[in-house]
Nucleic acid binder design. Structure first.
Length: 562
RNA sequence: CGGGGCGUGGCGCAGCUUGGUAGCGCGCUUGCUUUGGGAGCAAGAGGUCGCCGGUUCAAAUCCGGCCGUCCCGACCA
């Protein structure tokens, strides 16, 4: 491709609306343009990157025996009613009517459609197992699109679905996906982890996410450097240090004006881990008292898994239910559901007295009041790993892929079943697996970019070689560059030839901004010395090659150093 | 959905407090010069100041409403 013909509008300055590095650079390098919140146009260079990511995905999906197909984005609402998700999912799903007044949706994912297909076409255990995939557009009316292409309302996803006769076979399909995903992300040049994740709305019991560490990510994962335990903080477990507890023995203590953990702890000269933080939350089944240690934070996602969706009670509700103002809430005397974090087990704590200006000390949860114990706290950096006792690290990550064991969540209600060897009808056991190609690209930008621009991993770079022809007007330079460009093409490497009549400074700066792995310079020095210069975008090493053998040498360089 | 910021030529911004005929840098066009690190000189083109309404002799500027977009939070198959 010649730069003189390539549409790649670049910007010198960061766009005002961008915060994330990938967002700034993908706009500056002319990869994407924003149409509206969460809607992006992919320009030629951006699309080339996505196409290369997709090619890797296809390659590795095909390698595990998956078969590509394509399913509609526009879907009848009826099918979502069958699975039950039409009612469960709220404003995040785009809903519309066709001209005949039929309710339709724009697909946010394709479990329903693929299960519909399986229900009709899979009949016998002989038809199993199957893995079907597509690379298709998804639409979600996101509450908050953000960070460029990292969270958008319309995006493409590689989604695959496995169909198996039993759990054991599902395990195989699941493992095959793990294998494929590891290869895909390695080939794409990313640093990533596979972590345990919350199955969430997908249903099913087991799920993992593939996470690319980056400060632009929206998720946080807990990692054990010693045993390899890795989990999304939404479900990560840990062993917090246990304080020295005082002797038990209930006694009321006046704590005038001390409401927050900090104030009470200061007033009583006790460390916060000797206090109980009692939070009144409102659920569909009524109020629930959630308790964590004073030094810890409640993780709402964990609580939600036990009590369903919930919100913090407002001050009026607290007063009505506990009889005291927020700040003095505690479990004693309340006749509502109570859930305490596991770290409150076997300890002696100070709790709120449900009486303004008072707390109660010497309380033993489970003995002095009835309570369910559960893990409802947020893991903190430095807490001990539950498996090996090493210190956990927390890291912010971009979710680039996920895998779920669905079981019969969809096949059951939608009637996807098969006849086994004994002739009895059984539901198909399913799995669902996603990858976001745009997130893979953006994560690569986030992880590798430097002050000058993007640094693409070779496998997903828009071009592997960026040929800078310094002075196109100089016939000898142009001839050398053309020759090398054609030689590279003959060897299977499509280069970007910068044949534009712009100043050298612009060419070099833009080459760095675009981030192709190898930059080859042909200017007056090349004409005078018969050598071309090749430089690596990553690391910056420079090489000189005799013009006659330059193409072969550049190929070697790509193979060995990229 | 709650909180906050921003909306002025293509891009990045100033001007708004204190109302009076819209400015800077980059980019773009033309010419000449230049040509290994975002060139120089000269001459140009390009703006309903997000939208609607109000106040005023007069509104980019003050007031009200709406819209868009970004950030934090909630949410997130």
């Amino acid at each position: 491709m010649r730069a003189s013909r390539l549409f790649f509008p670049t910007h010198k300055e960061d766009p005002a609306e961008a915060e994330a590095i990938s967002h700034k650079l993908m706009i500056r390098a002319g990869l994407v343009r924003q149409l509206a919140a969460g809607l992006y146009v992919y320009l030629p260079l951006g699309l080339r990157v996505i196409a290369r990511v997709n090619a890797i995905i296809r390659d590795e999906m095909n390698a595990i025996g998956a078969q590509e197909l394509s399913m509609p984005v526009l879907q009848p609402a009826e099918i979502w009613q069958q699975s039950g998700r039409y009612g469960e999912i709220g404003a995040e799903m785009f809903r519309l009517r066709d001209r005949g007044g039929r309710d339709m949706v724009l697909g946010m994912t394709h479990e329903e459609i693929v299960t519909w297909l399986a229900a009709r076409e899979i009949r016998s255990y002989r038809d199993l197992p199957q893995i079907w995939y597509q690379i298709q557009t998804k639409l979600r009316d996101e509450a908050r699109p953000k960070s460029g292409v990292l969270r958008t309302r319309e995006f493409i996803m590689k989604d695959s679905y496995s169909f198996d006769a039993d759990e054991e076979s599902l395990e195989k399909s699941y493992r095959l996906h793990i294998q494929a995903y590891n290869r895909i992300f390695e080939r794409a040049g990313l640093k990533f982890y596979m972590v345990e994740s919350d199955p969430g709305m997908m249903g099913g019991a087991v799920a993992h996410e593939f996470m690319a560490p980056s400060s632009a990510g929206e998720d946080e994962v807990a990692l054990c450097p010693s045993c390899g335990y890795a989990a999304n903080v939404e479900l990560a477990r840990s062993e917090p240090a246990r304080p020295q507890f005082p002797a038990p023995g209930i006694k009321e203590i006046a704590t005038p004006g001390a409401r927050t953990i900090e104030e009470v702890s200061k007033f009583l000269t006790l460390t916060p881990d000797l206090l109980v933080k009692s939070l009144l939350v409102m659920t569909k089944q009524g109020p629930v008292l959630a308790m964590v240690r004073g030094d810890q934070d409640l993780l709402e996602a964990k609580l939600a898994r036990i009590v369903g969706s919930n919100r913090l009670a407002d001050p009026g509700e607290v007063k009505e239910i506990t009889g005291a103002e927020a700040g003095f809430t505690g479990p004693l005397g309340l006749d509502i559901r109570m859930i305490a974090d596991e770290s409150l087990r076997d300890g002696v704590f100070v709790i709120g007295a449900n009486r303004n200006g008072f707390h109660i000390g010497g309380v033993v949860p489970g003995r002095d009041f009835q309570v369910e114990f559960a893990d409802i706290r947020q893991v903190r950096e430095g807490e001990k790993c539950s498996h090996c006792n090493a210190s956990l690290k927390l890291e912010r990550c971009i979710e680039i892929g996920n895998i779920f064991k669905l079981g019969t969540k969809y096949s059951g209600p939608m009637g996807a079943s098969y006849l086994d060897e004994q002739g009895s009808e059984r539901p198909v056991i399913m799995g669902s697996y996603g990858i976001g190609p745009a997130r893979v690209a953006a994560a690569a930008v986030e992880q590798l970019a430097d002050g000058k621009g993007i640094v693409w991993p070779p496998a997903i770079a828009p071009f592997t070689v960026h040929l800078v022809l310094v002075q196109p007007a100089d016939g000898r330079q142009a001839e050398m560059a053309e020759k090398l460009y054609l030689e590279l093409a003959a060897l299977g490497v499509e280069a970007l030839l910068d044949d534009r009549a712009v100043s050298p400074g612009v060419k070099f700066a833009e080459a760095e901004l675009l981030g192709c792995p190898v930059r080859v310079t042909i200017g007056k020095r090349a004409v005078a010395g018969g050598q071309v210069e090749a430089g690596l975008r990553r690391g910056g090493e420079e090489y000189k090659f005799e013009a006659g053998v330059a193409a072969a040498k550049i190929i070697d360089l790509i193979k060995n150093k990229c």
